[in-house]
Each structure stands twice: as structure tokens, then as C-alpha cells.
Nucleic acid binder design. Structure first.
Length: 477
RNA sequence: GCUUCUUUAGCUCAGCUGGUUAGAGCAACUGACUGUUAAUCAGUAGGUCCUUGGUUCGAGCCCAAGAAGGAGCGCCA
């Protein structure tokens, strides 16, 4: 008798055969004539119902098995007499791996997400979080599959980086120095030559610069790894430690980059719809229940599944920054002075503006391109009109999910731009050299993995789509 | 970092204008009942009212400081 997971038994178990199941008790109920246990082993959102004849077991056993306990059960797979399921396991043997004491925090009822965040060690045992984690896995796998099938190479860019000029924000220092006794230079500054790497080092905020080096050799690469930003960002869509996918492609112009981003997102959503049906059905219902609790005007127009299907069957709207500004200036909220922040060419778009474009004007994902040079990173390819070949992909409910650009491939232009924004040339000599030795047009982007998971699962707080979130003042677990 | 809200039983939340012994549902426990589906019914037990300080005859409630959490904003993916 082979141990198989509950998913397999529910999907293709044969009635009348012997089975072994092991898992954690979700609920139990029953009495003298019959006992019921709902068991889950994480392989699927669905529980398997265990039926036990009390005459065959010690009564104390059933009393001890409470929500959260882990048990081994062997028995026969039978057709269910009850209504909620087609098959169930008639127990012949029940063994307890571990009981759950009465202070087990997860009850067979709905808990708040805030509460579960404080129980991050146990929340994967809930239906919602196990569903999210399975979807998260599927999306990770789909990312590798998408790029592998397209002939991209997975490049491992460094986690520890010596360049502090990646321009993407505050960094976490990496050091082995004794913080209570820092080696000093004569002028009183810290002597990093004494540190492990002999220089200042930090955790990466982006693998892009190294990714470009890979693309200039392998042609098509992508990275998929952890990324660290020490900004004091307290929002539902920022983490200090998150995962990012960064494709980088030689000979890609901005238009190719947009095509790739759109195809990529649609592929991932399609993959989840095909491979995570049970979990998405559950989250769709959950989402609908949440929406019902909201005020009428705050309710989303589409349900989760509806939204996902919409995104895979409609082209993304593409427009330039300049066109976006024009649309915003003609918009009702602008006319009625409802925007908090100014709208004029040259200023960065605020979330309220992006949200208007995505959720009100177009009601679908939007790709914005060609932003003013001044508000974008030094490495983006310069146009002749004071803009750079940048692109941001905005999606409903989340905002910016992808940021990317065609890269500046002209050595002089890149060097001058870096100089203008005050980047230390010496620390990126290797990056600049790619433009000296066989430079080529190339493009790439970064996709925030957790923001993708948010979009696919319909969760509204990024802390609920990563197993152990790292945010300001929170590194428990 | 800024704005704002919240913190009362294991969980979700009531608690009136400051007034005697702080409540409910669920969970736990005891029992009854039942092929049940977050089972049902009856009962029992369960409290540092976030912390510290203050005002008051009297503070869960008012004031101050702090802590933790949520929402919104900024920075971004």
C-alpha cells in the first residue's frame, strides 16, 4: 500500500482500494455512532473526509484529535454516503503523530489576515494561505518554463553587490565588521578596506546591471531572485525583501520589450488559470465575500476570475507619457480639481493618476512609455526630445507591476548621464565597458513577483502573498 | 517618513455621559444528540481592558508619552 497525497486520492482514487493518508486535522465532528475528521495534507485545497466507527477505536483518541493535530490514517476508500464529497476514507487504523494543544490558534472559522500575519508559522495551514502558496509555486515554475521555452538563459546575478549606484533606492549594508569597534581612517571615516570584501558592500536592489552583462553574451537572459530595499515604505505593496524577475534581451527595442512584457504576463495568468483551478475558485469566492462587505462604491466591477480572464483576452493599452498627461488634463477629476498632485509635463505621475488611467479611462492594463529623462534612471536610452525609452506596465488594483526600458547603448551618452546624476563612474567601470566593447541595442524589465501573485490571487496586501514577509520593524520568523 | 484609525477572553467584536461584579458569538472543557459538512443543543471555565505616567472620590472610557497593528500617501517592483 503506497502513501499518496490527498489530491491524488480525490482525483483518481479507486473505490474499494486501501489507502494511507497523513495530514493535519481541519475539523472533526461526530459522536456515538460515527466520527468524522476533515484532513488536509497541503497537496490540494480540498480536504478528505475520514469516517471512523467509534466501536473500533478508543473514545479518548477521538477526543484528543482536535483541529491542528497531525495524524496517520489507513483505511479503505469508499463512496461517501454524505452529500459534501464523493469519496471518503473509512478508517481502519488511526495513529497520532502530534496532537495540538488547546491553545492552537487556528480555529475552524474565518480569521483576520492581520491576525494570521502574526502567526506566519501556522498560517500556511489555512485554506487561504495554502492556496496562495500553491499558486505562488505554480507561477514561479511558469516563469522558468516561459523563458526556457523561449530560449532564455537563467542567469544568477549576485546577491551581495559592491555597486551602490543601481539607482533603485536605499540598500542594506553587508559587513563582518564589529559594529562596536569600527576600524577608522585617519580622518575619522570608516575604513572599509578592513571589511570582508575590502570595500563597501550591500544586498542587491536589482540584478539588472549584471543582467545586461549576461545579455551582451548569451543574448537572452533572465534573473529571478531575491531583492532587498531598505526604504521605510509602509504600504500594502512594498516589502524590504521581495523576489523579482528581470529579463534582459540583446537586440530588443522598446517595442519588443513591451511585446515580451505583455506576452509574459498573459502567459502567467493563463498558466495559473489552467493549473490552479481549485485554488483560484476558492480565492474567487473569498474575494467575492470580501467585496460584499465593502461599500457599494468601493466594490470592484469584476470578480477575480473575471478579471484574470479579461486580462488574458484583451491587448494592453499602450501610450506615451505625453499622451497620458493630455488625457489626465482632460479628465473629470482634473477639471474638478480632485487630484491632490499636479498634472503637467515633466512631473512624475502619482498613484492617483495611474489609477485613473488604468481603472477609469482604459479599464485594463496600460503600458506607459517615453517618460521625461529627468524622472527616470540614468541607464535608459535617450530620445531626442528630452524623454527616455522607459516603460511602466500598470495593472488594475496594483499599479506598477513592471518597470523597464531600452538601455542606453551609446558609451558617451551613458557616461555623461551617469555623471549628470552624480554616479560614481569607478564603481560601474565594468558596466560602462559593455558599451565600449561591442555595444548593442538591448532592453529589459523588472517584474515584482509578489505584485504578480497579488494580482493573480486577488489579495490586497503584499504581506499575504509571501510566506515570511520582511517589512520595516518586522523580521519575525 | 507623513496623515489617520485601531488595541477589551484563545479568535471576532460590544461596552451608553467617567459610577458597584466588564459582556456576546465562536474555540476550549463537561454532557446530550446526530451520516456529519465551520454539525446542533445545554452547561462550565476563561480578563495585566497594549504599556507607563497623570487628572478624578472613582478610569476600559478623559489627558500625555511610548509600543504594536491597519488604511491612505511618498519612495518603487
Amino acid at each position: 500500500m503506497k502513501t499518496v497525497c490527498i489530491k491524488e486520492i480525490l482525483e483518481k482514487g479507486t473505490i474499494g482500494t486501501s489507502v494511507i493518508v497523513r495530514g493535519w486535522v481541519r475539523t472533526k465532528r461526530g459522536g456515538k455512532p460515527v466520527w468524522f475528521i476533515d484532513l488536509n495534507d497541503g497537496s490540494t485545497i480540498n480536504n478528505i473526509q475520514i469516517v471512523a466507527d467509534p466501536l473500533r477505536f478508543d473514545a479518548e483518541l477521538f477526543g484528543n484529535i482536535t483541529t491542528g493535530a497531525c495524524v496517520f490514517i489507513s483505511g479503505e476508500l469508499i463512496a461517501s454516503q454524505g452529500g459534501g464529497q464523493s469519496v471518503e476514507v473509512e478508517a481502519q487504523k488511526i495513529e497520532v503523530y502530534g496532537l495540538a494543544s488547546s491553545d492552537y490558534p487556528l480555529q475552524p472559522k474565518r480569521h483576520s489576515l492581520e491576525f494570521l500575519r502574526e502567526k506566519a508559522h501556522l498560517r500556511p495551514r489555512t485554506a487561504t494561505f495554502s492556496a496562495i502558496l500553491r499558486i505562488r509555486h505554480s507561477l514561479s515554475f511558469a516563469i522558468h518554463k516561459f523563458y526556457n521555452d523561449k530560449g532564455f538563459f537563467y542567469l544568477h546575478t549576485p546577491i551581495i553587490t559592491g555597486s551602490d549606484c543601481e539607482g533603485a533606492g536605499e540598500m542594506f549594508r553587508v559587513t563582518t565588521m564589529d559594529m562596536n569597534n569600527l576600524p577608522k581612517n585617519e580622518d575619522g571615516s570608516i575604513n572599509y578596506k578592513e571589511d570582508f570584501f575590502g570595500k563597501e558592500t550591500n544586498l542587491t536592489v536589482s540584478g539588472q546591471l549584471e543582467g545586461e552583462l549576461g545579455a551582451m553574451a548569451l543574448g537572452k537572459i533572465y534573473t529571478f531572485g531575491p531583492t532587498f530595499r531598505s526604504e521605510n515604505s509602509n504600504t500594502a505593496r512594498h516589502l524590504a525583501e521581495f523576489w523579482m524577475i528581470e529579463p534582459e534581451v540583446a537586440f530588443f527595442e522598446l517595442e519588443d520589450n513591451m511585446d515580451l512584457a505583455e506576452e509574459f504576463l498573459q502567459y502567467l495568468v493563463k498558466y495559473a488559470l489552467e493549473h490552479c483551478k481549485d485554488d483560484l475558485d476558492f480565492l474567487d469566492k473569498r474575494n467575492a465575500d470580501e467585496e460584499k462587505m465593502k461599500k457599494k462604491e468601493d466594490q470592484a466591477e469584476m470578480g477575480l476570475l473575471e478579471r484574470l480572464n479579461f486580462v488574458i483576452s484583451n491587448r494592453f493599452e499602450r501610450l506615451t507619457y505625453t499622451e497620458a498627461i493630455e488625457i489626465l488634463k482632460k479628465s473629470k477629476p482634473f477639471q474638478k480639481k480632485q487630484f491632490k498632485f499636479p498634472v503637467e509635463w515633466g512631473v512624475d505621475l502619482q498613484s492617483e493618476h495611474e489609477r485613473y488611467l488604468v481603472e477609469k479611462e482604459f479599464k485594463k492594463p496600460v503600458i506607459l512609455t517615453n517618460y521625461p529623462t529627468a524622472i527616470k534612471s540614468f541607464y535608459m536610452k535617450q530620445n531626442d526630445d528630452g524623454t527616455v525609452r522607459a516603460m511602466d506596465v500598470l495593472i488594475p488594483g496594483i499599479g506598477e507591476i513592471i518597470g523597464g526600458s531600452q538601455r542606453e547603448d551609446n558609451y558617451e551618452k551613458l557616461k555623461n548621464r551617469a555623471l549628470e546624476v552624480g554616479i560614481d563612474q569607478e564603481s560601474i567601470w565594468w558596466y560602462l565597458e559593455t558599451r565600449k566593447f561591442g555595444t548593442a541595442p538591448h532592453s529589459g524589465f523588472g517584474l515584482g513577483f509578489e505584485r504578480l501573485v497579488m494580482f493573480v490571487t486577488g489579495m490586497s496586501n503584499i504581506r499575504d502573498v509571501i510566506p515570511f514577509p520582511r517589512t520595516p520593524k518586522n523580521a519575525e520568523f
